[in-house]
């Protein structure tokens, strides 16, 4: 039996679809191609892919709708492929359950890294019933969830409770983009709209864990979308 991971590629532009599938096949993935929303939905139910690459601009229906329909019954990792400048669209997709997004034009390595992260996440959730590992290490940064200690190059970093909560949230979703709204809801509850507070907290965290806050290594900003903790430095 074929052990390759199956990726459903939903893209109506033939040239792009061709080049992505070439890259994916060369990197030991098996690729199914869909050119429209309906076809994508049909192939998802039929083949149960391990990951979906979804372009939001489709000829027959809105990509967002495809995302909603799939999310109604499946937790398959979905990566949105979108054009630059459509931040609102990205945020919407992420809030509707997309796992990640990648902005056109993108490089091969970037695409593969995103796919790896997404697959790893889904495996984590599927394989371990207790996803709560007790610690995480990224480069020089380590977080010990049991002891609630954050260390940078073996030196303990003092974080306020809110800052620690944000760090935990980002590190539990390492590699994934978390939207501003999502973070705010998780930390402050559903009725608070404290955009400014989040920025201030992030700025403080950055000053504590980054060498140069203007060139962050661990938590990067996705302009207009949210924050992402990198999974490898």
């Amino acid at each position: 039996m074929n052990n390759k991971l199956v990726i459903l590629l939903v893209e109506d532009e033939l040239a792009i679809s061709n080049f992505i599938s070439t890259i994916l096949v060369h990197n030991e993935y098996s690729v199914i191609k869909a050119e429209s929303g309906r076809e994508a939905l049909r192939l998802t139910t039929l083949n149960n892919p391990d990951l979906i690459l979804l372009d939001l601009g489709l000829p027959d229906m809105d990509g967002i709708q495809v995302l909603k329909d799939i999310r109604e019954w499946s937790n398959v990792p979905i990566i949105i492929v979108s054009a630059r400048g459509h931040e609102r669209e990205k945020v919407e997709a992420l809030d509707l359950g997309a796992d990640d997004y990648i902005t056109k034009p993108f490089g091969t390595s970037e695409l593969l890294a995103r796919i790896r992260t997404a697959v790893r996440h889904s495996h984590k959730i599927m394989e371990e019933n207790h996803p709560e590992t007790d610690r995480i290490v990224i480069g020089g940064l380590s977080i010990d969830y049991d002891k609630r200690i954050v260390k940078l190059e073996d030196k303990e970093i003092h974080l306020t409770p809110i800052e620690y909560k944000i760090m935990t949230l980002l590190s539990r979703n390492v590699g994934k983009v978390l939207t501003h709204d999502f973070i705010m809801k998780e930390i402050w509850g559903p009725y608070v709209n404290e955009n400014q507070t989040l920025r201030v907290n992030m700025a403080n965290i950055r000053r504590k864990i980054e060498i140069n806050p203007a060139e962050p290594k661990y938590i990067v900003t996705e302009v207009g979308v949210g924050y992402r903790m990198v999974d490898e430095v």
Partner: peptide, 17 residues
């Protein structure tokens, strides 16, 4: 919209890098 200037700067730098 109010944005943290340093975040925007960081994003630009990372793209240049």
């Amino acid at each position: 919209t109010p944005e943290a200037a340093e975040e925007i700067m960081a994003a630009a730098i990372s793209r240049i890098r």
